[in-house]
């Protein structure tokens, strides 16, 4: 049992931080611990959460994806254009946007894989391209969509206080968890991040997996953009600016190692909720300003990165 505690302690630390934060906030602020607020936590952070799920796959494989914020914006604007300007029904427009997101990610993955280029630069190009396209789609940069019946209908769905964004997020968590745990693709993601050359020697399909990983990041970001549109009833080309940073932070705080190979979707969920609570606290505490959020997130990052470092040294000494 001790062994297993050792193995899971990064995740347990994250869980501990989350519980402590939640309990502290619940004691300090009336209404924080209500069921409605709990559901709201998921709803408010659905876009970030979806992006972080995709980012988890990417980081587990040892890569990075700087384009997710821009892809969210592109999806948001794309959906608005398809529905409001071109008059497509929502049930066609949404799958179309998801396909575009998937294709965008897969394209970046293919370039990274084929030409052996650093993911940092390729996804940086992807970020410029997606953000630029989003901004160029219309001159207004923002399209109000409250007149779209489809979007209105979707935004009014509520199941035990969980809106559509929160539900999509939770379903995505489940699907991603299952994919990482129960599919060969998922295990190959870990294998690539842990030791790519060994994975190749073991005959695992590196190329298709890498393309798949960035495709997943693309589709998750696109879904993030879609739920954002549903939540705000507007498409916006400047939304999710630098959101990739928060997504990376959530993944790292969730115990996933930036070098790849180690981490979990559950951790990412916890990381997203930690960021979510930290961002909510200033709403309750008038004298606490929003910039403290960034400083606290930076500190949390520092703590978790150092913890990972220590645990690596420790396990390295045994190996």
């Amino acid at each position: 049992m001790k062994m297993h505690l050792n193995r899971h302690w990064p995740l347990l630390t994250t869980a501990g931080v989350l519980v402590a934060l939640y309990v502290a906030a619940s004691i300090a602020y009336t209404g924080f611990s209500s069921w409605f607020q709990f559901a709201q936590l998921f709803a408010d952070n659905a876009t970030l959460g979806l992006a972080a799920i995709g980012m988890t796959f990417v980081i587990l494989s040892g890569g990075i994806d700087l384009s997710v914020g821009a892809v969210i914006a592109l999806a948001s604007m794309g959906l608005a254009v398809l529905v409001s300007h071109m008059g497509l029904p929502v049930w066609i427009a949404i799958p179309l946007v998801l396909v575009i997101g998937t294709g965008f990610g897969a394209f970046m993955g293919a370039i990274i894989q084929m030409f052996k280029l650093p993911p940092f630069l390729v996804t940086l190009a992807g970020m410029f391209l997606a953000r630029g396209t989003a901004l160029l789609l219309t001159e207004t940069k923002r399209i109000e969509m409250s007149d779209s019946a489809g979007i209105r209908a979707l935004s009014s769905v509520l199941v035990v206080d969980f809106n559509i964004a929160a539900m999509v997020f939770l379903v995505a968590v489940l699907v991603a968890w299952a994919a990482l745990k129960y599919t060969r693709f998922g295990r190959t993601v870990f294998a690539i991040g842990s030791d790519e050359s060994a994975a190749r020697l073991m005959g695992l399909p590196i190329a298709s997996t890498r393309v798949g990983i960035y495709a997943i990041s693309g589709v998750c970001a696109a879904a993030g953009g879609i739920v954002h549109v549903i939540g705000t009833q507007a498409g916006d080309a400047s939304v999710a600016f630098l959101l990739e940073l928060d997504a990376i932070a959530a993944v790292v705080i969730g115990g996933t190692v930036l070098a790849g190979g180690r981490g979990s979707i559950l951790g990412t969920l916890l990381g997203v909720l930690i960021l979510g609570i930290i961002t909510t606290i200033p709403n309750y505490q008038g004298n606490l300003n929003s910039w403290w959020i960034k400083i606290v997130i930076g500190l949390l990052l520092l703590v978790f990165v150092v913890l990972q470092r220590v645990s690596q040294r420790w396990s390295g000494a045994r190996g």
Binding site: L245, A249, N289, S290, W291, W292, I293, K294, I295, V296, I297, G298, L299, L301, L302
Partner: peptide, 9 residues
């Protein structure tokens, strides 16, 4: 991440 927060602080 933290630096911009410090600047805003």
């Amino acid at each position: 991440v933290a630096g911009r927060g410090i600047a805003q602080l």
